[in-house]
Amino acid sequence: MNNFMVAQRFEDEAEAGLDAIVDYVLTLRMRPTPVRLRLLAGAGSAARFVLVERKAAR
Results as ranks from 00 to 15, higher is better:
Y24F: 12
L28K: 15
F4N: 13
G42K: 08
R29K: 03
R9G: 02
A57R: 15
R29V: 13
E15M: 12
A14D: 07
Q8K: 01
L37E: 03
P32E: 12
I21M: 05
D23W: 06
L37F: 02
M1L: 04
V50L: 04
A57F: 07
A20N: 12
M5L: 14
F49R: 02
T27C: 01
A16P: 07
L40H: 14
R58W: 09
A56W: 06
V50E: 04
G44N: 09
D23S: 08
M5A: 15
A43R: 12
R31K: 14
L51C: 09
P32W: 02
G42P: 07
M30S: 08
M1V: 05
T33Q: 00
D19C: 15
F10N: 00
A41F: 11
A47Q: 14
L28M: 14
R54S: 07
G44A: 13
R48M: 01
R48S: 00
S45Y: 11
F4L: 09
F49N: 10
V52K: 14
R58V: 08
P34G: 08
E15K: 13
T33H: 04
M5N: 10
R54I: 15
A47D: 14
A16F: 11
A43G: 09
A20G: 00
R36D: 02
G42W: 13
